[in-house]
Design a protein around this nucleic acid. Structure first.
Length: 767
DNA sequence: GTTGGTATCTGTGGA
DNA sequence: AGATACCAAC
């Protein structure tokens, strides 16, 4: 107890641990002992006399939360279990279960995953008779998600001229209406999507019924946030609600690294780090920078440093290592994707032999999950054990989702997506058109589909089948409060006919599906019986109800599934998934333009910066050996494509890379000469060609004006605007549909600096 | 309503 | 290439 944990820390780390009161920002480079600081800080808070349940620690993955708890336990023992440590989503779901009635939800609310969400949106688009080509379901979903993450309600969305204009521009003028209907339908279904778990909590705190907010403000005396650079506006808004109020001690500590922010695509913003500094400056914020890297050798650390310097905006820091030079970075060039697979696998074999590495010391990291296949083939050929992370998780398999849908319905009959999924599976003679009819009926009557089900107009045979179905769900529902989750699940699996259906399928795949179903049931059994998996309710009691089980698995990812087991295998995963992990030998593959950096990001500087941060994350996973590879050609969609080597390869300083004939690399900062630097990326748009603007702006010739595509507008360009004349693009912010340019129009004398939404601006590129 | 074949689309990351 | 969406025939 109260061990000498403080002695295991360096000076900065120790400061970050012992300064437990007041606001703290920890900027933590890769491999700098961030988790250690976070866990020891929590342990230190507990040692100072604070009850574990008064500490809230938010992470992004269950794995991070689990690891944190484990390491706290090493210092303070069993008390660690009572710390409120978990993912944003799981902790918030826990609170929402208790408070659900205050915002008009049942505590047995369903959590909709992406598939459910897509299905709801698809149904709405169909019902509104909208063109499904223009109204791409996923595009609408991400738009709605972005709105929620930016605290924009359907009402605010409908009133927001800018957003509406963007939608008109994208030929989706009714997006606002879909959003409104989607929210209403989720509510009707007693369902929350991933964003709702955040948004509804925010709403609860905002409305503050029965002094709810004060209750949680009083409860969580110390708040800690991991991976703060990955939080979105909404998440930070909730954190502020909890800690930033009059009379608050503001015991909040956020840990993050702007250079490792790789989730801007889902609304994360490093602006939160900057805002945090501003928001808490008046309250004596303390900032600690962890810059010593304990993970990697110098060639690797310096490569990472040099690469990230190509990004424009960042918090100044220099990561260093005292682990010695180590091996240089190796670059593998291959003609084809297949050859890349072979040569990487050869090198893995070499590493195993030469450096006595085990499979578990090695990882292959790629930009997209679809790249795993070729490496799997080669690893199999060499008989090297491997494990692929990502892709379809166990809970996303059809047969598993089917049974889960039944269970969801048992717990919450309002759950429309579950009902749609299982009403005619196994077949009961209720086809798509009948289901649509039912849905329309429910919509116009303001009832749930379940309520309309009994009165459904159908043939005698179908009616009987439906009645049996309703009966089965009902009787299972009655058992929920008393019987254990496993027993209910087994009887539903049998009663629904799912088991019989799968048993009748004697193909290999069919047997596999039955096995998966049984594995799911086993999982529920262990949830009910074993001590190791604990789901605590808001009061800290163990909750083994079916409802708790369903809400728990909805927030699991496949990573949480697989990583628990040991075993000696090479790890194959996306770079995103690798964040926070480390391996002795890391292969970053597919380093080609349009792939890494992704073609989706290639057209905007912000997108490229994020890709570069992703590359930075990949590079810094390596402890001793880093190998980069690319192929000149690869198959995509059955077609051979040729790609240039990634620009990131060029950014690897040659002094840190093994010299090979084909690899040129970059000069390091030290050897770079002045003229080259002057033409480099350091120059900001403000200085480019300033003063060369034509004086005495001529009137714009409207007849010859031809607007350039909005996505081609980039920082530094000179553009023509019909009203404002010629201008210079000083800055472009935002991504994809949301790009905003700051343009300096000399002719507009009142206010020459205009901020313009590129999506609907008519601009012609001059140069 | 169901089945099976053909057209179409896909192209990042994930809680 | 592989999954899904859509349509025509049963």
């Amino acid at each position: 107890m109260a061990s000498n944990y403080l002695e295991e820390l360096n000076d900065v780390q120790r400061q970050a641990v012992v300064n437990i009161d007041g606001p703290v920002l920890v900027v933590a480079g890769p491999g700098s002992g961030k988790t250690r600081v976070l866990t020891y800080r929590i342990a230190h808070i507990i040692e100072s006399g604070v009850a574990p349940w008064e500490i809230l620690a938010l992470t992004f993955t269950n794995k991070a939360a689990r690891e944190m708890k484990g390491r706290i336990a090493k210092v303070v023992g069993d008390r660690a279990e009572r710390v409120w440590a978990g993912t944003f989503h799981s902790i918030f779901a826990r609170i929402l279960r208790v408070e659900a009635d205050k915002i008009g939800y049942p505590s047995s609310f369903t959590i909709y995953d992406t598939e459910d969400t897509n299905s709801v949106i698809g149904a709405i688009i169909r019902e509104m008779n909208l063109d499904k080509n223009a109204y791409n379901t996923s595009a609408i979903r991400s738009r709605i998600s972005a709105a929620k993450s930016a605290l924009i309600t359907p009402k605010l969305y409908a009133d927001n001229e800018e957003l509406r204009q963007q939608d008109r521009q994208a030929a989706r003028p009714y997006t606002y209406e879909i959003y409104e209907k989607y929210v209403a339908r989720c509510k009707r279904s007693g369902a929350m999507d991933f964003d709702d778990l955040l948004y509804r909590l925010y709403e609860l705190f905002q409305r503050n019924p029965d002094g709810i907010l004060d209750k949680y403000r009083g409860k969580f005396r110390y708040v800690l946030v991991d991976e703060f650079q990955d939080t979105n506006q909404l998440q930070y808004a909730i954190i502020r609600k909890l800690v930033n109020f009059d009379g608050s001690p503001r015991n909040v500590c956020v840990v993050g690294d702007d250079a490792q922010s790789i989730y801007a695509f889902r609304g994360a913003t490093i602006q939160n780090i900057l805002d945090f500094e501003e928001d808490f400056k008046p309250f004596g914020i303390k900032t600690f920078k962890l810059e010593q890297n304990y993970r990697s050798t110098e060639h690797i650390v310096q490569t990472a440093n040099e690469v990230i310097m190509n990004n424009r905006r960042q918090i100044q820091k220099k990561i260093w290592s005292d682990k010695g030079e180590g091996h240089k970075v190796k670059v593998i060039k291959a003609m084809t994707d297949n050859e890349e697979g072979k040569r990487v696998t050869d090198t893995i074999l070499e590493h195993k032999n030469r450096f006595h590495l085990s499979n578990r010391d090695i990882a292959i990291l790629y930009r997209t999950n679809s790249q795993s296949r070729i490496f799997e083939e080669h690893l199999r050929r060499y008989n090297i054990g491997y494990r692929v992370f990502g892709g379809l998780s166990f809970y996303q398999r059809k047969e598993v989702k089917d049974l889960i849908a039944y269970l969801r319905l048992v717990v919450n009959q309002r759950d429309e997506e579950a009902l749609r999924r299982v009403l005619n599976y196994p077949k009961r003679g209720v086809g798509d058109s009948t289901i649509e009819k039912l849905s329309a009926q429910a919509g116009s009557a303001g009832k749930t589909m379940w309520e309309c089900l009994a009165a459904l107009d159908a043939g005698a045979k179908a009616k009987k089948a439906i009645a049996d179905f309703v009966q089965m769900i009902h009787s299972a529902a009655l058992r929920v409060p008393t019987d254990n989750a496993y027993e209910i699940a087994v009887s539903v699996a049998r009663g629904s006919g799912l088991i019989d259906l799968l048993k009748s399928d004697t193909t290999i795949e069919g047997m596999g599906r039955l096995e998966n179903l049984n594995a799911l049931l086993d999982g529920i059994k262990s949830f009910v019986e074993e001590d190791t998996i604990s789901v605590l309710d808001a009061e800290g009691n163990s909750d083994r109800s079916l409802t708790a089980y369903l809400q728990n698995i909805a927030l699991l990812t496949d990573q949480d599934e697989n990583s628990a087991e040991g075993g000696d295998f090479v790890t194959l995963m996306s770079v995103h998934a690798a964040k926070g992990l480390e391996f002795k030998s890391v292969f970053v593959v597919g380093l080609e333009e349009k792939l890494f950096p992704s073609f989706m990001a290639s057209d905007s500087p912000e997108g490229l910066d994020e890709e570069r941060r992703l590359f930075y994350v990949a590079v810094t996973r390596a402890e001793q050996l880093l190998t980069l590879s690319y192929a000149n050609s690869r198959y995509r969609f059955g077609q051979m494509r040729f790609n240039e080597p990634s620009r990131f390869l060029e950014e690897v300083p040659r002094q840190h890379a093994e010299s090979t004939a084909h690899f040129r690399g970059s000069q390091s900062t030290a050897e770079r000469n002045a003229p080259e630097q002057a033409s480099g990326a350091k120059i900001t748009g403000n200085f480019v060609r300033r003063g060369t603007a034509v004086s005495g702006m001529p009137a714009v010739d409207a007849a010859n004006f031809k607007a350039s595509p909005s996505d081609s507008i980039q920082k530094g360009m000179r553009v023509l605007h019909l009203k404002f004349g010629e201008g210079e693009v000083l800055e472009v912010e935002g991504n994809k549909d949301n790009r905003i340019a700051t343009i300096f129009f000399k002719a507009a004398e009142d206010d020459p600096k205009k901020r313009i939404m590129l999506k609907f601006a008519k601009l012609q590129i001059v140069s």
